[in-house]
């Protein structure tokens, strides 16, 4: 404000306006804290968590640009610029791990993302509360089973004498082979098991969103002659669209994040060509070979891509649908 004006009076005035505004703002916050102190108290652990576990460790990101030496420590290690990033981009497996990470994530978004939405829509149509509750409980139970256990089960089911291994062999009329040793099936197994594990849990949010839709809209739709299907298309889906878009933006931010655990527990030499991802590569380089700087550089590279994707999606969403994170 008042950029061109050099009059001291105006400047003082504008400053005082700013001060007044700030004061008002602080006063408002103070009042808000006073009024809603319990809510702030509930939020406090989360805020502390983020400061300690997300912001403080950012100090360590610098080792990606250094030759980190364990004895010398972070600050005393010499700077090497982009050396580790260049090494990663030039490494033999660069294209492969980036591509695999993207493909698993892409298929995950394509199939695993809509699954809980469809599930929530279907569940919404069930009229028997008892039955709906039962289905819901059963489907979100796998979420609480540890990944290690799930992978152990997958190993057993997919073995040459496991029920899935035998079922697929019978279906295709071939000899039973271990499904986890076939690169063609890796992504399918990965994503299907992911859907099985998380469909119930992830649908909770959508179910809540559906319950929040004003019943009057349905009544209006019925009066207009809409059937069940038309109600779902024209009322329910638009009603939960903001939730879906926010979730999608989050999902985009994780596009290059394929969880380490599950891939690590399921992959083997026969499927490396499709299953070796950035996180497993980072693990091997960083923790097994103790190349901390290098693996930090790889992780940072990954994070930057994720951030760009998140920002882009958010930008597009804001322009197109007016729903956005920031």
């Amino acid at each position: 404000m008042a950029k061109t004006s050099t009059s001291p009076g105006t400047k003082a005035k504008s400053e005082s306006v700013l001060m007044v505004r700030l004061k008002d703002h602080f006063k408002m916050i103070r009042r808000d804290i006073h009024v809603n102190k319990h809510i702030y108290l509930i939020a406090l652990p989360m805020i502390i968590y983020y400061i300690i576990f997300k912001y403080v460790p950012m100090y360590g990101i610098q080792i990606a640009f250094k030759d980190y030496n364990l004895i010398k420590g972070i600050s005393a290690s010499p700077w090497v610029g982009f050396k580790h990033f260049i090494k990663f981009v030039n490494s033999y497996y660069f294209v492969r791990v980036v591509k695999n990470t993207f493909m698993i994530s892409f298929y995950g978004t394509l199939f695993a993302f809509p699954a809980p939405i469809i599930f929530a829509l279907l569940l919404n149509e069930i009229r028997s509360t008892k039955f709906r509750r039962t289905v819901q409980t059963i489907t979100y139970m796998p979420h609480f089973v540890s990944t290690v256990v799930v992978c152990g089960m997958i190993h057993m089911f997919c073995a040459s004498d496991g029920f899935l291994g035998v079922a697929v062999a019978n279906l295709l009329g071939t000899e039973a082979k271990n499904l986890l040793m076939n690169p063609k099936y890796f992504r399918t197994i990965y994503i299907l098991s992911d859907i099985w594990k998380n469909i119930g849990w992830n649908s909770i949010l959508y179910i809540a969103a559906i319950l929040g839709i004003d019943q009057a809209q349905y009544e209006a739709a019925v009066i207009d002659g809409a059937g069940k299907f038309a109600q779902a298309i024209y009322v329910t889906i638009p009603g939960i669209m903001p939730t879906v878009i926010i979730k999608l933006i989050f999902r985009m931010g994780e596009m290059m994040d394929v969880g380490f655990e599950k891939v690590f527990l399921l992959y083997n030499e026969a499927t490396w060509q499709v299953s070796d991802v950035i996180s497993t590569y980072t693990y091997r380089e960083g923790l097994l070979n103790m190349n901390y700087s290098y693996s930090s550089a790889v992780s940072l590279f990954n994070t930057v891509i994720n951030f760009v994707l998140l920002w882009t999606t958010n930008f597009i969403s804001r322009k197109v649908s007016e729903t956005s994170l920031f």
């Binding site: 997919c158 073995a159 004498d161 039973a176 082979k177 271990n178 986890l180 083997n268 026969a270």
Partner: peptide, 8 residues
């Protein structure tokens, strides 16, 4: 002749 599940 080799264990079909040897990799896992």
């Amino acid at each position: 002749l080799l264990d079909p599940d040897y990799l896992t």
